[in-house]
Amino acid sequence: MRYIDLYFKLVAAGIRAQLQYRFAFFMRIVGMLTSYAGTAITMWVMLYQFQELGTWNFYEMLFLFAIAVLSWGFCIILFFHFRSLDTYILNGTFDRFLVRPINPFFHFMAMKFDVASFGQFIFSIFIFIWVSVELHIHWTIANVLFLLAAVIGGVLIQGGLLVIISAFAFWTTKSEQFYWVVMYPARNLTNYPLVIYPKMVQWFTAFVVPFGFVNYFPASVILGKETPYFPENIGYFSPLVGIVFFIIAYYIWMLGLSRYKSTGS
């Protein structure tokens, strides 16, 4: 309970700090909207001649993409700053999290709360409405609840991966680069239906780094698409996979921290 109270206080401070730079804040939202619109346009151009990508049409792909964007939006708010843990370690500012009487993971997590994800929310909600009309999706309460649960699962999976990537900094003093090498391509990969990839890759994104549960499996459930090689409705496991993956990530981070404490770099 104490931590929840403290989290809100720390987070409120983080938001106030961010709002000191209003113009930067605004431009970041514009930038994010531009870049997501760019990906959507690329998808449209791609399907202009071909109509379908592995049985997925343009609107279905947009829907798939929008789920990823929405959960990534929450992920940015909560965990995006984890990727730059290496900078904190290199310039010594990480030590301040270790001279305080609270859990360093919690302290580090609460340090930033990036509210610039408005861009993601505006974009994904717009797409959801547009696609729902085009594809005549019937939104029932169960559907909406499932989508929310899947988004939470997606936040935990992507957040978990960010946490694991940041933990690399404890061993290698690098994390930002790992983000650009591992996570950035992986996120791009999942913007498209996993069914188009080799079986090995699909298997990997289902059971090793479970990105399939962020958007592909849940979207397949809602849109009634087939997921070859995988049981039908595997998407229902998204929230559970998210929780398990995040717990594993947390322990990896704590393991890295104890390693940091023995090497100091």
Binding site: R16, A17, Y21, N91
Partner: peptide, 14 residues
């Protein structure tokens, strides 16, 4: 209590 002369422990932007 710890003070590192070259690095502040305070919230930079607040």
């Amino acid at each position: 209590g710890v003070v590192f002369g070259q690095r502040t422990q305070l919230w930079w932007d607040l």
